[in-house]
Design a protein around this nucleic acid. Structure first.
Lengths: 213, 213
DNA sequence: TTGACTTCGTGAACATCGTTCACAAGAAAA
DNA sequence: TTTTCTTGTGAACGATGTTCACGAAGTCAA
């Protein structure tokens, strides 16, 4: 045996990520992985329980990389003395956009992976890695001087994240590739701008049932 | 032959939608459709080019139904004399939430379907049906008395839609089923509230490059 | 009516996929 | 050396998407 077991696993994950990035979920085939990794099909199932297990492991790496990208963007702004809330939120959103662009196949594959089953899987680990991002956003909001209690700030952070996520994914699902990046940037700019102005005006955001007569 | 060709196609689509709704994309099998529809496997391929073609047709029906739900929600509010922008936007968002809840499997399958290939498909028809929804939102914004030019209003409508979409999909991707509906409602209420307050303050939302020193 | 032509349903057949498993090779222990 | 355990192997199985040669049934002209 030439390689360590863990080392072989890493190589399989690297190959799997390339396959996912190039051809989406349908391109993740056990025989292709085995061939490119120089092992047999059975060995793939020795290293991972399923192909789903391989995909899950790739997704973990992606989420980790996304967290690093977000933290790096904040660290970079801090190093340059930028403290403006708008700039920091835009930088976070931009980091996410660049991350999605850097993973044109594997990131959509992660999203599709979660939607494949109704709710059978246990995305606890997923949520844990996403919480890391939420806390970054909540931290930015906390420094913004808004008069928000902790609970509202938590909701606002998740709302902001979900909104940016929706803008980016909806944007890239549209037809043209060019000109679409511009649309995404404009939507994000409008969202962040409107969000900050709305928060600055204070007030409560209770789930008021105003729609009923 | 007992049934018309088009009628058989409708039955196939109805069966396919049930299958998708119950088990997601993996549950859409040619042999299952043929068996439940009382036809042969080959006939399915006579009626539709691919299984993807079947899925596409189901998705069209879903998008039509979503458009009807949105329009109905607006018509209902108009009938009850409700003209407040916040109420109307919340009603639209609520219509979307209820739509997603009414299609727990087939709607995620639609989203996963679009993410399956990088950008090979031509979602022109998709976009056309979504534009219908954007125009509804833009119409509500136009009645809101905000000082927005048509272009900004278009962007704002799409931003609002994408944000709500992101909130809903991110929300249902999380772990618990209960208590999650509450989280979604709170995020939507915060988003709409913040959005309206932000728009009321006017100003431009140009893509100002403020992040660079 | 009859014959040719067209249309369309049929299901066996093929290729490919995920997954399993009996087997063997090799390392470690005795 | 012998035994035992681990681990890689690839043939084999079942399921799936898709095709296609065949035949039944309808249509129409003579």
């Amino acid at each position: 045996m030439a390689l360590d077991k863990e080392e072989t696993g890493e190589r399989v994950l690297a190959i799997a990520e390339v396959l996912l990035n190039e051809g989406g979920m349908d391109n993740l085939k056990a025989r292709t992985i085995a061939e490119q990794a120089g092992i047999s099909v059975g060995s793939v199932y020795n290293l991972f329980s399923d192909l789903d297990g391989v995909h899950r492991a790739v997704n973990m790496r992606l989420l980790d990389r996304l967290g690093v990208a977000g933290a790096a963007a904040m660290a970079d702004l801090g190093r340059r003395g930028v403290t403006d809330v708008r700039d920091r939120l835009l930088a976070l959103a931009d980091a996410y956009v660049r991350f999605v662009e850097a993973h044109p196949g594997s990131w959509p594959a992660l999203l599709a992976f979660n939607r494949r089953r109704p709710v059978l899987t246990e995305p606890d680990v997923y949520e844990a890695r996403l919480d890391q991002l939420f806390e970054i956003i909540a931290g930015v909001l906390a420094d913004g001087g808004f008069d928000l209690d902790e609970d509202t700030r938590r909701i606002a952070a998740r709302t902001l994240w979900s909104s940016v996520h929706g803008i980016v994914t909806s944007g890239y699902a549209a037809r043209s590739v060019r000109r679409q990046a511009d649309e995404i940037d404009r939507q994000i700019a409008l969202l962040v701008g409107v969000f900050i102005r709305g928060l600055e005006r204070g007030g409560t955001f209770a789930h008021a049932g105003g729609t009923t007569s």
